[in-house]
């Protein structure tokens, strides 16, 4: 390659027609991948999927009727209560395994300095003097963020679903056919709201450490206040103040389970809360970015 040209040369190659936010998506993704912690968490998510897939495969080979056995065992243990079945309910449990140890820490690690860094280095002026618009910038950054969150969560869960369907006897597919759609919708909404919320926090605190602290405090506080108010007033809608309960209700609802017990927030309210957080954070970030780029 023609490096080390001490003289300026005009560019004679062809230009790409890719949208300007595409390089931003790519760069954000690369930046995330450069973090050792993020790589470890991603591999952790993939490893969980691989282990569960292998277990599914071998159990199916060795004890083909294990699902019926598990159900029977569930009935014995639970009595009249709901039996334990390897259908959408298992995916609900799995989803929580992926949300708390994988998705939330990943969101913190990736998002804590993404836009705060751009504001600190005044990079927005460099971006917006190029063909990218504030909306394109936000789209590039946020889509990469969400893609990164879905890679070690949705992808392994879909892989587990595939292995489940391929190793299961005929008829099991009918019980879990809506699972991929439910998982995708739940994880997309949770990831998008987290990604935008954390980015909005970083633009306020301008510090990765403060963003992490504020996020953890809000998470714990909301998790305490919501249930406390729900208990005091006997109104389960107050549970929607707890971030974790919204995640639970959204996952539950999208996976096709009926309205959960009264101690959880209603599905529609939780979707509205997460959707509202997403929309508000998006509008806030767009205004912030426009203000910095177009007036600053």
């Amino acid at each position: 390659m023609a490096f080390r040209a001490a003289e300026y040369e005009r560019f004679s190659g062809t230009r790409s027609n890719a949208p300007p936010w595409w390089p931003l998506w790519h760069a954000t993704f690369q930046r995330g991948w450069a973090s050792r912690w993020i790589r470890m968490i991603t591999f952790g998510g993939i490893a969980i999927a691989a282990i569960i897939s292998l277990i599914l495969y071998f159990v199916q080979k060795v004890v083909p009727e294990w699902r019926a056995m598990l159900e029977e065992m569930g009935q014995r243990v639970g009595g009249e209560g709901p039996s334990l079945r390897f259908d959408a309910e298992i995916y609900l449990i799995l989803l929580h395994w992926f949300v708390y140890p994988v998705l939330v820490p990943m969101a913190m690690l990736l998002g804590y300095d993404l836009m705060a860094g751009d504001l600190r280095g005044n990079a927005l002026e460099s971006y917006f003097s190029r063909p990218i618009t504030p909306l394109g910038y936000l789209a590039g950054r946020s889509l990469a963020f969400v893609s990164f969150l879905l890679l070690p969560t949705l992808a392994p869960m879909l892989w587990i679903w595939c292995m489940d369907v391929f190793t299961a006897p005929a008829g099991h597919f009918a019980a879990v056919r809506m699972v991929p759609l439910g998982l995708s919708a739940a994880l997309l909404l949770i990831s998008l709201s987290l990604a935008l919320f954390i980015q909005a926090l970083t633009t306020i605190t301008r510090s990765g450490l403060w963003t992490a602290l504020v996020f953890v405090i809000l998470f714990i506080l909301s998790g305490g206040i919501g249930p406390a108010l729900a208990d005091l007033t006997d109104q389960r809608a107050f549970m929607a103040l707890a971030f974790w309960d919204n995640i639970f209700s959204v996952a539950n609802g999208f996976l096709g389970y009926p309205e959960p017990a009264r101690q959880h927030a209603p599905f529609a309210l939780s979707v509205s809360i997460l959707g509202g957080i997403t929309l508000l954070c998006f509008l806030y970030l767009l205004a912030k970015v426009k203000h910095r780029a177009l007036v600053g």
């Binding site: 560019f11 190659g13 062809t14 230009r15 790409s16 027609n17 890719a18 300007p20 390089p23 931003l24 790519h26 760069a27 460099s126 971006y127 190029r130 063909p131 990218i132």
Partner: peptide
């Protein structure tokens, strides 16, 4: 990265 935003291919 900035050049890519202006339409240059990654290698270029």
């Amino acid at each position: 990265h900035l050049a890519e935003i202006c339409g240059l291919r990654r290698g270029d």
